[in-house]
Design a protein around this nucleic acid. Structure first.
Length: 139
DNA sequence: GCCAACGTTGGC
DNA sequence: GCCAACGTTGGC
């Protein structure tokens, strides 16, 4: 299993909206960046991810699971763009803020810091464990 | 609201 | 194929 991070502006698509979708989940559409799309193509059903709020909150707020592999993005008529479907697993106990991530030397290589504009990014197993620990959830 | 970083586009 | 111009994202 691999780990990922999904970034969203809460004003566009928030954790609460994701939770409201329940087990049906929702496509992670709207990605128009090749790097991010390529990561989504690598995802497999059952992979886990962090749900990160950018802009206002700047924190990991929940855990999601990939429930459908990459398929055409239904929001655009252009077959270059694909997306996966994800569902909310549960909220974190303590939101892990960008500040906290930056302050921990074990996380200095995270794409969240290294490439802050990337909206879908891979997370290593070690990083997953550290962030889960900070968040107060089981890895 | 500003600015840095970065991706994309289009002219040459 | 290069590079300048431009647009977008996200942190501050």
């Amino acid at each position: 299993m691999r780990y990922w991070l999904f970034k969203s502006e809460p004003s566009t698509w928030s954790w609460d909206q994701q939770v409201a979708k329940g087990d049906v989940g929702e496509e992670w559409d709207g990605v128009r960046n090749y790097q991010a799309r390529n990561f989504m193509r690598e995802m497999q059903v059952g992979d886990r991810g962090f749900f990160y709020h950018s802009q206002t909150e700047k924190a990991v707020v929940g855990i999601v699971e990939v429930i459908a592999e990459a398929h055409p993005d239904s929001t655009i008529d252009d077959d270059r763009w694909e997306c996966v479907d994800i569902k909310a697993i549960g909220p974190v106990q303590t939101p892990v803020t960008l500040e906290m991530v930056k302050a921990d030397p074990r996380l200095e290589e995270m794409a969240l810091i290294r490439n802050s504009r990337l909206s879908v990014q891979p997370v290593t197993e070690a990083e997953w464990a550290v962030v889960c620990e900070m968040a107060g959830v089981a890895p």
